[in-house]
């Protein structure tokens, strides 16, 4: 199997690694706190009131 075919087949691993890295960066800059604050209040826009 040629090199590029192997690379393409394993792209998902790169995606996974990138995902982990982004999650870490997101956690470091406090993204999950922002998401939590938004998610525990009733989102008036989402339900068509705000």
């Amino acid at each position: 199997m040629d090199f590029w075919k192997i690379c393409r087949k394993n792209l998902w691993v790169c995606g996974l690694a990138l995902g982990m890295m982004f999650l870490g960066l997101g956690a470091a800059q406090g993204d999950f706190g922002v998401i939590f604050k938004k998610a525990v209040m009733i989102c008036l826009e989402c339900i068509g009131i705000g």
Partner: peptide
């Protein structure tokens, strides 16, 4: 958010779920 930041937290979620 008031100060724009790259939304890494959610990008991570997309890459994680999407790649699998």
């Amino acid at each position: 958010q008031r100060n724009f930041q790259v939304p890494f937290g959610v990008l991570g979620v997309f890459f994680l779920f999407g790649s699998i």
